[in-house]
Computed example of a mutant assay.
Amino acid sequence: MRTWMCLICGWIYDESTGAPDDGIAPGTKWEDVPPNWVCPECGARKDDFEMVEI
């Protein structure tokens, strides 16, 4: 599982935990997150996220 960070606000998307409050189930890989999904903190697009090591 990988983690992705919003380059605008720093919010972290962790594939193992998903984003259940936003309809993304735990275990959802980044490439399977819908293309129109936006950061729950700042509204940034998926293009504004970068894979990071934690």
Results as ranks from 00 to 15, higher is better:
7 L>R: 10
13 Y>T: 02
54 I>F: 02
11 W>C: 06
29 K>C: 06
13 Y>D: 00
2 R>S: 14
51 M>F: 04
17 T>I: 11
32 D>R: 14
44 A>P: 04
52 V>M: 04
18 G>I: 06
19 A>D: 09
52 V>W: 09
22 D>Q: 12
32 D>Q: 14
37 W>L: 09
22 D>P: 00
15 E>L: 02
36 N>S: 12
38 V>H: 15
10 G>D: 03
38 V>A: 15
43 G>S: 10
2 R>C: 09
1 M>A: 12
36 N>T: 09
8 I>T: 11
38 V>M: 12
21 D>W: 14
32 D>I: 04
30 W>Y: 09
5 M>P: 01
14 D>S: 08
41 E>N: 10
40 P>W: 10
4 W>Y: 13
20 P>K: 13
36 N>I: 03
3 T>C: 13
7 L>V: 05
47 D>W: 08
10 G>F: 07
39 C>P: 06
22 D>T: 05
45 R>P: 02
35 P>Q: 15
34 P>C: 09
43 G>N: 08
28 T>P: 09
2 R>H: 10
47 D>H: 12
36 N>E: 11
27 G>V: 00
13 Y>F: 12
23 G>Q: 06
11 W>M: 10
14 D>A: 07
23 G>F: 03
39 C>V: 00
1 M>I: 14
25 A>G: 02
24 I>N: 07
1 M>W: 14
13 Y>C: 02
50 E>S: 15
41 E>C: 11
3 T>S: 12
12 I>F: 00
30 W>A: 02
51 M>Q: 11
